[in-house]
Write a protein that binds this DNA or RNA. Sequence first.
DNA 1: CAGTAAAGGTTCATTATTTGAACCGTGTTA
DNA 2: TAACACGGTTCAAATAATGAACCTTTACTG
Lengths: 259, 259
Amino acid sequence: MGTALNALKMLDLFSSSLAEIGLSQIARLSGLNKATALRHLRALEEFGLIEQNPQSKTYTIGPAAVRLAALREIARPGLEGARQKMQAAMLEVGESLHLTLLEKDTLQTAVVVETTRHSVRVSLDPSEVIPINATAAGLCMLGFGPSYLRDHLDMEKQERFTATTLTDPDQIREKVTLIQRAGWSNSNGSYEEGVFGFAAPIFGISQVALGTISIAVPEIRATSDRLPVILNSLQSLSRDLTANFGGQMPETFPTEFHP
Amino acid sequence: MGTALNALKMLDLFSSSLAEIGLSQIARLSGLNKATALRHLRALEEFGLIEQNPQSKTYTIGPAAVRLAALREIARPGLEGARQKMQAAMLEVGESLHLTLLEKDTLQTAVVVETTRHSVRVSLDPSEVIPINATAAGLCMLGFGPSYLRDHLDMEKQERFTATTLTDPDQIREKVTLIQRAGWSNSNGSYEEGVFGFAAPIFGISQVALGTISIAVPEIRATSDRLPVILNSLQSLSRDLTANFGGQMPETFPTEFHP
DNA sequence: CAGTAAAGGTTCATTATTTGAACCGTGTTA
DNA sequence: TAACACGGTTCAAATAATGAACCTTTACTG
C-alpha cells in the first residue's frame, strides 16, 4: 500500500454534500489515525490540493485541483465532457460504456465507464487495440470512418476470435452496408463469448467518424426488451458526443435507431 | 519530507507545453530514482490524477483532476475565477494582491496572489483577521459594506498598530466619507510600517460590498508615478470581481478612480 | 543487419520514513 | 465545573520507501 495513495484517498471523502470536514471527522471517515491524517492533510495542503479554513479549521479541496484540471483539458481536450455524458448514460442503461477513438489506423479505447448497477459486468482492458472486424465499435468505424479503413480490409488477414467472428472481407462489407443504413452496429459474441456489443459513430468535422461510443452487455442481460433503451441511449450519445468534439452528423444519418 | 508530497510534486512537471511525459524523462526532471518515480506514478494513476497512454506509454494528468476541480467550485464558488483575474492583474501591476471577504462581522483574507516580479514583497499571513480601522481593505469595507459595520464603530475600542493608525471613531468616519466619494481607499503604513495599501470594493447582489480587492505596495515602490497604474487595475478588478460574484455596482459608484 | 543506446519496467537487501497510542491545551456543552 | 470533543504534538516501534543493478523491448546507426 503506498503512503501517497492513502493520502490521496482522503480527497474522496469530500463530496458536494460534505464539502468541508474537520480533522477528527476525516480521521474517523478514513479510518486513519488522527496524527496520520493530519500529516497527510499537511502534505496535500502544501501542494494545494487541500485548503484549511483558518477560522473554522475545517479542510476543503484546494486550488491546485483547478490548476490540474486545466492541464488535463490541454492534454485530453473534450474527453472530460464525454466522460460525464457517458456516466449519465451508464446510470440510465445500467451497462458499461466504451468510447473508442481512431488513432492512425488503429481503434483505441479512450474512456471506459463501468456499470455500478450489476456485479456481472463486461470489463475491457483499456490498453487493448480494438479489432476492427470483430467488435461492434470496429464494424461501426468501418461503416462511418475514413474510407481507407474499408480499402485496407483485403490487405490484412482478419483475425478470428470466436466462432461468430467475421473474417471474410466480402462478408464484412455486406455487414457494413447494413450498418450504414441502420446507423448503429452490433456484435453478438464475435470478439468474446457471452459479450454483446452495440455501437454508434461519433463524427468529426468533415462528417467522417473519428470514433465510436459503444455499450457492452453480458449475454444474460441482452434480452430483446432491453434493446429499445440501449439504442435510444446510443442514439443520443452519438449526437451529443459528436457535438462535444465539435463534429457534424451527416444529413443522411438516421435520427432514430430501429432494431 | 513527506512521500506523498514528493509524489504530488511530479504533477508540477506537467505544463501546457509539456503535457505528456515518459517515465525516464519524469525521473530526470524530478531528480527521483526511476523506480521511485514509477511507483509514485502508479499511485497517482490508481487515484486517477495520472493517466498513462497505453500505446505511447507516456503519462498525463488524469481525470480525477477534473472531478476534484468540480468539488472545489462547490466549496469555494467564484474564488477560482477571481484568482485568475487577480493573477493577470498581478502580472500587470507587479505587486501582491489580496481578496478579502466579509464573514459575519470580520474581514477575512480569501485569496492571496503574491508578486513574482519583486523580491521585496508584502507577505500577509492568510489566517489573520483584517483590522477594519487600520487597513485599506477595512476602511473600504466600512465605506461600502453593510451599515452595521459603521454602527459598531463606537461599540468596540479600535486597536492601534502604528503611529498613523486611526483609532478615533469620528476621524474614521471622516476618512470613510472621502472613500465613499473616491471609490477607493488607501492606508499609508497604518497597519504595518512601510506598507502602503490600496483597496476597492467588490459588490454583492444588493449593491452592498461583500468584500474588497486590495493591492499592497512596499513604501519604496509607492511612488506617485505608479499610482495611475495601480488605481486603474483596482478599478477594473472591482468591476470584474463584482460581476464574477454575481453582484451589481451601485449607479453612483465612480467609473474612474482619481488620486 | 549486427551493435548500441535509451526506453519502460522489475528486483530485493538496505534504509529511513511513516505510524499510532498517549498526551496536551482549548473551547463547548450539560 | 466536570466531562467531552476538538485540533494538534510527541517519540519509540514498525512498516514502507528507496535505489543500484538488471531485464526486455524498441529505435536508430555504422
